[in-house]
Design a protein around this nucleic acid. Structure first.
Lengths: 157, 157
DNA sequence: TGATCTCCGATCAAGATGGTCGGGTAAAGA
DNA sequence: TCTTTACCCGACCATCTTGATCGGAGATCA
């Protein structure tokens, strides 16, 4: 069903929360720890911890150890795209198996495959969609998706 | 990874094949049976059979029993969208769990969820994308989607 | 030093998915 | 009518992915 994994969901929630604390009006610059997020959104603590670790390893957030430790955005919210977040957790976006040309494993259908090219184009469009929306767009009341609808962008028919 | 299931892949291949036989120049109007498609694309016969049964039950193709039987498109190739095909196999498109409001099951995060609205917008955009491309677009030499993505050459990471 | 927090690897159960099997029913042709 | 061919349908199973858990090591600050 083209579903996003729960881990990625959690990542989005966590980043949104961190961003809104860090750049909010109440306690700007405050560090946020795992427990706070887990309790706020009812996310299993250990699972969320692992998600944040991955995000940290991929450079989306900075971790600070020890008491009073926690996480901070590594970049501005407007410089983090949804695509980056999801791919950071789930790996490269691949709508179909044959899109990442790992040599060695070969698709049984490849020689006569008639849908590869169109699927790759769809995949590109989805990627563009996700890459044009940032964490910043998810927060404030600013319009969320600034990309034009596919038809407006030129689906020729 | 936002992946499409293999069943849906098979459905797309099969429909593309049926359409190209049915409206092709060689043997227009010919009925196509399961075995022919399975052999052409190296798809497990029984699995493909099940996929075609679902497509038939959902009104995308017509089945004809007996010897010389097989499948035909129920509508013109331009009237079948990719979204319809995928949803016919995988059920309603749902990028995230909380998008289909089944009463009874409630999302633990819902009360404080901060990402639901933006995710639903993304889902909408993806749906539009898939619903604006038809089986007919997948076939002929006509351009499919003219959107150019910066990552068209492959995502390196 | 001790309390608190992040970090990291190993592990596990449950569910979805891909794939298989076998017993039906409908239709065409000899 | 009988046989062959092809669709129909439900049960079944192995495997992979996913969500979730546990235990301990390392860093930081009072």
């Amino acid at each position: 069903m083209l579903k996003i994994s729960k881990k990625a969901d959690y990542a989005l929630m966590a980043l949104q929360h961190i961003a809104s604390v860090q750049f909010g009006d109440v306690t700007p610059g405050r560090v946020v720890n795992t427990k706070e997020i887990a309790e706020e959104y009812n996310i299993p603590l250990e699972l969320l911890a692992k998600v944040l670790q991955v995000l940290s390893k991929n450079g989306l957030i900075e971790s600070h150890n020890g008491p009073k430790g926690g996480y901070l955005l590594a970049r501005s919210a407007r410089q983090v795209t949804i695509a980056q977040i999801i791919e950071s957790i789930e790996g490269p976006l691949a709508i179909t198996d044959c899109s990442h040309e790992k040599d060695g494993e070969f698709c049984m259908q490849l020689e006569h495959c008639n849908i590869r090219t169109p699927l790759l184009k769809i995949q590109d469009s989805i990627y563009q969609l996700l890459n044009n929306m940032t964490l910043g767009d998810m927060m404030g009341g600013t319009p969320l998706i600034t990309i034009q609808s596919p038809s407006a962008q030129g689906v020729e028919r």
